[in-house]
Design a protein around this nucleic acid. Structure first.
Lengths: 219, 219
DNA sequence: ACCTGAACACCGTTCAAGT
DNA sequence: ACCTGAACACCGTTCAAGT
């Protein structure tokens, strides 16, 4: 392989592709080397280790999520948008999201998004202390929730099916005497999908924030 | 080692202890074998593989979280309690929680808790469809949020410190021209701890649920 | 029926050697 | 300066052999 053919960017590109196509277990240094057309150890010239690559992949994910993100006319739409963007990027790359976990990188895309979100909370009339706290609530909600969903989706198909099946079986067959309340809602319980759950949680959070805002969003 | 000295329960006990004491990386089959006083491969007599052990550990965690959980007089206290219990158990065993991830086991403790939560939502006057959806919101909130927090806490001390430090440095030094809103809230941003954030998110969620409930909690 | 221990096919990382 | 390839110290799992 010629010199300079390996760059941090190309390594992150290929890592992300490997994670997308082969899942968390498919991302190994031998595979990464082969996909790059280089010896597996050549990567260590550019990253201190596998963990550093994962951190760079995490950064790429947030960049993808947040590119083009800017404030909406109504501040509460700004908050909703950033949460949906993070979830969208994480679910588009579940294995990468699951491995990079709750580690953020504070690079420009993330900083700009943080600034925009805090600005939206300022527009809502919140003081510094409240804005700081609510920024953390919104950011953690987006990252932790989406990260958890991504971790589930990054399970291999077989495990995931087994998981979903066991869930369905257990609740569907819940003994009406032992679990009367589960029994009552067992049918609608299976029409709920995780996008509904996320959107509902987001709506509930934002409604409460709007309720507390010194300035409501529609002015 | 005499026969019968290895039981699934003892294996889960020791696995959880190993995870607590040595973190995610400290939980290996050789170590597990040694800690059990048996050959590492003897464990395969009782569990199909490492993943099955982790699943059993996840179940143990939920059991620990939910033992003694029962409905409160006010239904919204029931919802708050279950969320705090899950978070408490996960943060008490961050490595175990991080590895078992979003995989639940539907064993009795979990089923009973689900029934209690759905019952509380019934007390609130929600119909079957709404109760099912809100049950998922509350359960996913507790599991995904706590799981994400646990994943962060299960990073080795060095990485965690590096992470926290980088975070502090980046926001503290945010350029007031480039990131004016971050700059405005930079001081209170560091007095926020993750317990505050969790409690605030929980409060916001529950307030919205109370707002929508056909029957308010204080009756 | 349960446990042992050698063996297998991996893995991430190091380091001397090449160009 | 950048890449190679042998080597190292692991890892999870299988399977024949013991008792």
């Amino acid at each position: 392989m010629r010199r300079g053919a390996l760059t941090p960017e190309r390594i992150v590109d290929v890592s992300l592709r490997l994670l997308d196509e082969h899942g968390t277990d498919g991302f190994t240094m031998p595979r990464l080397g082969k996909a790059l057309g280089a010896d597996q150890t050549a990567v260590y010239r550019h990253f201190a280790g596998k963990d550093e690559i994962l951190l760079a992949v995490a950064d790429r994910l947030l960049e993808e999520a947040l590119t083009g993100f800017e404030a909406h006319p109504h501040w509460s739409d700004t908050l909703a948008d950033v949460c949906r963007r993070v979830r969208g990027a994480y679910l588009a790359h579940p294995a990468a999201a699951a491995l990079s976990g709750p580690r953020t990188t504070r690079r420009p895309a993330e900083m700009r998004a943080a600034d925009t979100v805090i600005g939206a909370l300022g527009d809502a009339g919140f003081g510094a202390a409240e804005a700081a706290l609510l920024y953390r609530v919104v950011a953690d909600f987006a990252l932790l929730w989406s990260g958890g969903e991504a971790a589930f989706h990054s399970l291999d198909a077989e495990t995931k099916a087994h998981e979903a099946d066991g869930w369905a079986r257990a609740y569907r067959a819940a003994d009406p005497r032992e679990y009367p309340h589960i029994h009552r809602v067992r049918d609608p319980l299976f029409e709920v999908d995780s996008a509904d759950v996320f959107e509902t949680a987001l709506r509930l959070l934002l409604d409460s924030i709007e309720q507390r805002a010194p300035r409501p969003p529609q002015t």
